[in-house]
Each structure stands twice: as structure tokens, then as C-alpha cells.
Design a binder for these strands. Structure first.
Length: 495
RNA sequence: GGUUCCGUGGCCGAGUGGCUAGGCACUGGUCUGCAAAACCAGCUACAGCGGUUCGAGUCCGCUCGGAACCUCCA
């Protein structure tokens, strides 16, 4: 049987060209995808979580289509300059000194935290999660190779990429972000080492370490650390090759980070690295950019627990994920208490319909066009991963399932196809998770038994028209966070 | 100031020139001891002003408003 990607060919909005393009991988049937990971010097924030959740969905769909995917997402644990430090000191080292611990201790703590958040959001780990500090020699080799080409120069122990020379020799710095060279000259500020550069738009490939800089490695030029953009070029090349399929990251990395990456890759191997660039959009909170200084910020764990002045309550990771999937990855998404509340209701309705799916009976014949429906779902996803459209189609199916009089009938063959399709769309692709999986099963069993007893007692009271007792039970349970739902076939409850 | 992008019904959010996206809220109904839940039905918007077109939410121009980037940032 042919893989799904032949029936539902994928198209991707390529930010390198600005066009939506048919996706054709370098090696048929295989996909190499590199996504810029987090800098692990503080708590992962919600924006990071959105980006990585989007790429998790993309990873899931690529695999679902039948591709063999190698998904590489790095951990940046070295090499970024502190923006408000005039020492040119490593971000991680600076924080370490403030907290009086080892840099790698910071890295470890926030890496673990990051993994916890992504796990809660039901994101698969990438195939490879390389660290910048684990790939210093590869980065040094890359610097050397660019120097050999003549597109970089050494200055006082540091090495800078020579943007002017690169562009004079056929390079296209600015190709991704649409920036023109002359526009890049203005508006620079007094960064450390600026006087070492020939040109303000040149960027560091290797930086000589100041005496206070803790993270440092020997190199042919100085004891120092790699430049801001080098790790991604080095690691994507190492694990995916000089030319690979997809490179992703947040929109904010487009310039300068990804622009520099392309230049570095191109300078080394005359390949541009990735053929398809995908940029996920930003997340705002109550219509504004998140900012710690104004208090307009929220951490994933605060979102889950509700421990924030901006929220009435906590939202389960599956609800958060559903909320994110209701918007397209390439659109700005605004987080707010009200929007989350609305998403939660939709999410819960979707999941309870999926539970009801198991109780559906098969008929002799099908009365709906199941094939056409499944086709629509795949076409939405294959059209640049349009999860909001997929969700709209899912709600159409929900209507079929939950109509009281069973508006539809499905043959037993179709019923199992229908079940399998819904499960794979909701759980395998969107990555939603059933609530019951969160609670311990033993507790759940015990609660079920206790509740059926309470429900039985209330049913007796109602039979005796003892409304006082019946309503007391209902109201007290409500206060305890348990909601009774009276239906035609008896009463059940939800937490 | 420059680059990129966005402004869709009460709210959130899809829309790839012509065919009701969807969710939440709301209103009516079914059900019900009451309520909730559930189910059924209704709710037709595209910032403003011009232009192109037989036809524009969708293309072009201008105006207003917003976002990201231009300095580390998903």
C-alpha cells in the first residue's frame, strides 16, 4: 500500500520564498527537520511552549503521513551574549554567578523543567536533542571552514563573519528576512567587540572569553566560546546533512538568527541548509506582548495550576493544547482567561463525544459519506497543517455521534474506520489527552463506586419526591467540584 | 525610521476571487420535579475610503489601528 503522503501530498508555506509550495523531501520517504530549541537559562515561557507544540503537531503529522522523520531540536546551553552586560559575558554564566552555582547546574535545572512542561503538553521528545556545549569541536571546524573560504576574519582572538565579502561573492545575506544590506548599517549600538568588526552587520562566529567568563573552550584563535548562531548550523549539518528538508523556529528568530544560519551553511558548503523554512507565530497575552516587567506574563505551570492573577482557574494541558490547535501556527495567538474558558468547553464536548463513540452500535448500512469526511480532514492537514479546519471537521463528526436519535448509521466496517480516524485525528495528530488518564486509576475506580452509591441514594430520594435531599446531594457535590448530569439513561458525573 | 505581517459577527478564531468554517456566548425549543447537562434550531460579519473585476473578506492603492523583528528572545 502506498504511504499516505502520496494520497495527501503536503504543501508548506515556505518563509524562504514566501510561497506555499508542494513539499518534496530530499530523500523520498524521509524527512529531516531541525527546530531551534530553547535557551535554558530560565523558565520556559508560554511562547516557547506554543512553538514547540506547533512543531510537535507537525512532527506527528509527518510521521502519520508515512514519512520517516528525524526531528532534531537543540538545547542552547552556551554562547549567547547577555544583552545588558557590557562585558560580553555568556548569558548562562552571568545567571550562574548571580545564583552562585555552576553554569551546568542552571542548564540542568531548566532543561529538566522544559522537558516537564513539554511532557505535560503531550509533546513527543525529538529524535535527537543535541546541546551546544556538546558540539564545540564541530563548531570550531565550521569556523575554520568559513575562514578558509575567506568569508570570515580574525580580530583580537574573535572571528567574525564578513557579510560584505560574502555578499560580494554571490552570497545572499538578507534572503530570508528581506533586509537590504545598506539598511542594516544604521542603528547599531555599542555591543562589546563592535570595534573589532569591519562592519556593523558582521556577526561573531567565535568570541574570545573575558577573564570573568566561565564557560570557555580552547580554539585556534583564543580561549572562548562559539558565536550566537553557529550551533544550529553545526548541529543541523551534523545530524541532517548539508541540505535537509525543514528548518523551523519562532518568528522572532527569523532575523538575525536564521539569516546568519543560512549564511554560515552557505559559506561552508555552498548549500543553504534547509529547503523549507517554517516560522511559527508569536503568542500574546491579553492582546499584548508578554513582559515580565509589566506583569503581563504567565508560565506554563501557572497556566496549568491557575496560580496567576490573570486567570480565574487552571487549565489542563490538553485544553491548552486544544486552544493552540484552534489557531493556525502561523497566526498570532492571543491568550486570555475568556478565550481559554471557551476553548475548555469545546475541548470537553469533543472528548466526551469521543467517549460516547465506543457505545455506538453498527447498522446494516452507512448513511453518511465517511470517505468524503476523512478526505476533508486529511486535506486540511496537508494544506500547511491547518489544524483549525481539522477541528471544525471534527465538530461535524461530533454532531453525528452525539445526536440523541443517532442521525447517522454506520456499517460495522465503517464504524471501526470512523473510530480509528477520529482517534488518530484527535489523539495522534492534535495530541489531545483524555482526562481520565491524568487521574490515578485506582482512585478513579474507588470514586466511581462511591459516586454510584451516592447517585443511587439520590435517585431513591427523587423517586420519593424528596427534592430537599436530592438537591442537597446535588448542591453539596457541586461545591466539592463534582457535577451531576441527569440524562435519559440515568445520572453520571464529571469533575 | 526600516523589514515582515495582521485588522473577520458579543468573544476566540478559519477562510488559496464566485459555494453557510468552527468553537464559546446568546435566543428559542426538546427533555426535566426544578436546575444543570445533553440534543435540535436560530444568530451571515469581514477597520475606513477608493480602485481592478461580470463578481472581493480574498487582488491593488491610501488612511486609521495593532503585532513581531531591526539588540538575546520561540
Amino acid at each position: 500500500m502506498d504511504p499516505l503522503y502520496t494520497s495527501y501530498p503536503l504543501s508548506i508555506d515556505n518563509s524562504l520564498t514566501g510561497e506555499k509550495e508542494a513539499f518534496v523531501p530530499v530523500h523520498e520517504g524521509n524527512v529531516g527537520m531541525y527546530v531551534c530549541g530553547p535557551t535554558v537559562y530560565s523558565d520556559v515561557h508560554l511562547g516557547n511552549a506554543r512553538t514547540f507544540t506547533s512543531f510537535d503537531m507537525i512532527f506527528r503529522y509527518l510521521k502519520h503521513l508515512g514519512y520517516k522523520v528525524r526531528y532534531v531540536r537543540n538545547i542552547t546551553d552556551a554562547g549567547h551574549l547577555e544583552n545588558d552586560a557590557d562585558t560580553g559575558e555568556d548569558k548562562i554564566a552571568k545567571k550562574a554567578r548571580l545564583e552562585q552555582i555552576e553554569p551546568m547546574e542552571i542548564v540542568q535545572r531548566y532543561t529538566v523543567d522544559f522537558h516537564k512542561v513539554m511532557d505535560a503538553l503531550n509533546a513527543f521528545p525529538p529524535s535527537i536533542e543535541p546541546t551546544a556545549t556538546g558540539h564545540i569541536s564541530e563548531q570550531i571546524e565550521m569556523v575554520q571552514s568559513i575562514l578558509d573560504k575567506g568569508w570570515a576574519y580574525e580580530s583580537n582572538g574573535s572571528v567574525y563573519f564578513d557579510v560584505t565579502a560574502y555578499n560580494a561573492n554571490g552570497g545572499a545575506y538578507g534572503i530570508l528576512s528581506g533586509r537590504k544590506m545598506d539598511e542594516l548599517q544604521a542603528g547599531t549600538r555599542a555591543l562589546d567587540g563592535q570595534e573589532e568588526k569591519r562592519n556593523p552587520s558582521d556577526f561573531a562566529l567565535w568570541k574570545k572569553a573575558s577573564p570573568s567568563h566561565i564557560m570557555r573552550w580552547p580554539s585556534p584563535w583564543s580561549v572562548g566560546f562559539p558565536g550566537w548562531h553557529l550551533e544550529c548550523s553545526a548541529m543541523s549539518t551534523k545530524y541532517l546533512g548539508e541540505t535537509f528538508d525543514i528548518h523551523g523556529g519562532g518568528m522572532d528568530l527569523k532575523f538575525p538568527h536564521h539569516e546568519c544560519e543560512i549564511a554560515q551553511n552557505n559559506a561552508c558548503s555552498e548549500q543553504k541548509g534547509a529547503r523549507y523554512w517554517m516560522h511559527t507565530n508569536m503568542l500574546t497575552l491579553n492582546g499584548k506582548r508578554m513582559s515580565k516587567s509589566t506583569g503581563n506574563t504567565i508560565l506554563p505551570r501557572e497556566l496549568f495550576s491557575g496560580d496567576s492573577p490573570l486567570l480565574d482557574k487552571g487549565f489542563s494541558p490538553s485544553v491548552v493544547r486544544f486552544f493552540m490547535m484552534q489557531a493556525h501556527y502561523s497566526s498570532v495567538l492571543d491568550f486570555s482567561n475568556d478565550a481559554l474558558l471557551a476553548a475548555e468547553k469545546g475541548h470537553d464536548r469533543l472528548l466526551s463525544a469521543l467517549e460516547k463513540l465506543d457505545t455506538l452500535d453498527a447498522s446494516k448500512e452507512s448513511t453518511i459519506g465517511l470517505e468524503a469526511w476523512i478526505d476533508k480532514c486529511y486535506q486540511a492537514m496537508s494544506d500547511n497543517f491547518n489544524t483549525p479546519i481539522l477541528i471544525a471537521h471534527l465538530f461535524e463528526a461530533i454532531k453525528w455521534i452525539s445526536s440523541a436519535e443517532s442521525a447517522i448509521a454506520l456499517s460495522s466496517a465503517d464504524l471501526s474506520i470512523f473510530k480509528a480516524a477520529l482517534h488518530s485525528f484527535a489523539f495522534d495528530l492534535l495530541g489531545l489527552r483524555k482526562k481520565s488518564l491524568d487521574a490515578g486509576d485506582a482512585h478513579k475506580d474507588a470514586l466511581d463506586k462511591a459516586m454510584s452509591l451516592v447517585i443511587e441514594l439520590r435517585a431513591q430520594a427523587r423517586l420519593n419526591k424528596d427534592w430537599g435531599t436530592a438537591d442537597l446531594i446535588r448542591d453539596q457535590l457541586q461545591e466539592a467540584g463534582i457535577k451531576l448530569k441527569d440524562g435519559a439513561e440515568g445520572t453520571n458525573y464529571s469533575l
